[in-house]
Amino acid sequence: MKEGVIIDLLKKLFKNDKDVSSKNIAKERLQFILIQDRIKLSPGEMESLKEELLAVLSKYIDVDSSNIKMEVDRHDDMMALVANFPLKRSV
């Protein structure tokens, strides 16, 4: 029993909350689901929207394609598609 407690404690001390805790998984899944619900796009359409945006942007700027984030936010009675295309650090 005691060992169990100690192990739990160690886990708590060392675990990277962001990755392990199930609430963060829930939150991430929800955010993704809500984008589709709010703008009524299927996961496939979402993906092609992202690809096409990326293609257009890449013509002009160096986008870091591994870190793209898209969200639909609600402000009062307005919704906004917020797309985050980080730029590659120039060397």
């Binding site: 909350d17 392990v20 805790s21 199930s22 609430k23 963060n24 829930a26 939150k27 929800l30 955010q31 809500l34 936010d73 609600r74 402000h75």
Partner: peptide, 19 residues
């Protein structure tokens, strides 16, 4: 469960629902 990180807390919900 919130304390263990196994349930969304109040702030998570407000952030997501924005109401």
């Amino acid at each position: 469960m919130v304390q263990k990180g196994d349930m969304m807390d109040i702030d998570d919900m407000i952030e997501i629902l924005a109401i």
